[in-house]
Design a protein around this nucleic acid. Sequence first.
DNA 1: GGACGCCCGG
DNA 2: CCGGGCGTCC
Lengths: 275, 275
Amino acid sequence: MKIATWNVNSIRSRQEHLTNWLQKNPVDVICLQETKVIDSDFPRSPFEELAYHLYISGQKSYNGVAIFSKIPLQNVSVGFAHRNPVSSSNRVSQVSEVSSSNRVSELDEQKRAIAGIFEDILILNLYVPNGSEVGSEKYEYKLQWLKVLREYLEVALKTTPNICICGDFNIALESRDIYRQTKDTEIMASPQERQSLQAILDLGFTDAFRKFNPDAGHYTWWDYRRGGFPQNRGWRIDHFYLTENLSDRAQSCIIDKEPRTWEKPSDHTPVILEL
Amino acid sequence: MKIATWNVNSIRSRQEHLTNWLQKNPVDVICLQETKVIDSDFPRSPFEELAYHLYISGQKSYNGVAIFSKIPLQNVSVGFAHRNPVSSSNRVSQVSEVSSSNRVSELDEQKRAIAGIFEDILILNLYVPNGSEVGSEKYEYKLQWLKVLREYLEVALKTTPNICICGDFNIALESRDIYRQTKDTEIMASPQERQSLQAILDLGFTDAFRKFNPDAGHYTWWDYRRGGFPQNRGWRIDHFYLTENLSDRAQSCIIDKEPRTWEKPSDHTPVILEL
DNA sequence: GGACGCCCGG
DNA sequence: CCGGGCGTCC
């Protein structure tokens, strides 16, 4: 089976790109970030016509995540409030089965996480906060968010051996993931962010892309400004992180640079995992 | 020779449409309205590559007119300040040879008129104010503008027998020019506007389109709202008005509806006069 | 540089 | 509905 992740930078602006890409790449599951639209305005039909079941959690202007799946997902939930199932038409259940702290429900105001079970795999689709500048309020929010994510995963791992986390992490873990040397004060590469992400991986996740490719020079995001893409000035910040069982099953993990060459592209390009 | 007029509703948004259309329709002269861009940002090269000389008078956001000509125009002037020549690079002369009233120079703040001589013909390209609502301040401005236009033409006619006025007049003179019955309080069809325009035609101009086609149901503008175009709910508000000599020379005057069927079109479609 | 919302203008 | 400008975010 194939799973893709793609920060589309507005589903409404990228509808054509995404349908074209899915026709060429009929993956079983695709995880999207930065859909930037409230659920009632999400363009469902073009993707339902491609035989996908849609699970979406969006807001106006910012953030927004979605999972499309060729088969229905089980136990779909949004945010970090544990076991909060939604139907494919996005009703959110009235009851929350755990005592969500204020912190968690505050974090869930931004639509950055959606999860569902595909066969025996829990797929968790994330749009990690960007963090703006090191030391800023948004940076603290990013670190807080990663801490809550870690707690969420600790709980999930107790019952679920096969977890696939993917999405836009807004963090490049190593120097080989960035086209140039960076300082410790740079967002997406600062030690604190990296440590927060590493603490999550230390729960038992491995980077699927690095199972197959140790080389530098492979990126998933290029800044729109300063002609980043033509000169391959990129960052690898979109990831698949897999629990051990799943990592063993992984057959390939590739970055498809093609959509970034199209007219009016997203600044990110898709990553595809084959299991 | 062929002259076209087209309200493009932003030259930057319509650049592709216009170059495509000019390749199919290599008219000698094209008069554009609502270019909506300051002269320094006007996309000159795509049109210069099609062998046109460009004469432009634009402003930020609103209005803006331009003439493209296969041969250089003589005595190009912008606005109503009489004999105010500009070069093809749009320098405006420092001297105004007539005592421009404050009224005229105020009206010229909005870039709605540009003129030039092609062979023996004075071509006057106009974007008449819309007028918003009957009785409004903008309506009074429209009537004022038409009055000044009339005065301008009275002077011009003394020395220039061959005048071709064209552009977006934002007035449909007769009921056969509108897809439905209108009330006297409707903008673009109110008696006062029509009288102001008729007073101009009474100086000795005739409607080139009506020389060839007396039928109702021929329009040049369809509102973006309420799916006006698919149901042909249009208005004929873009016109060629010719002095007698020129009217006698006119071979055809047609409305090309095709560009209005293209993706993301202007709400207006071009009219082509053959002399 | 390119999304968005909001406002203005047609 | 579809242009433009502006402010905001990434």
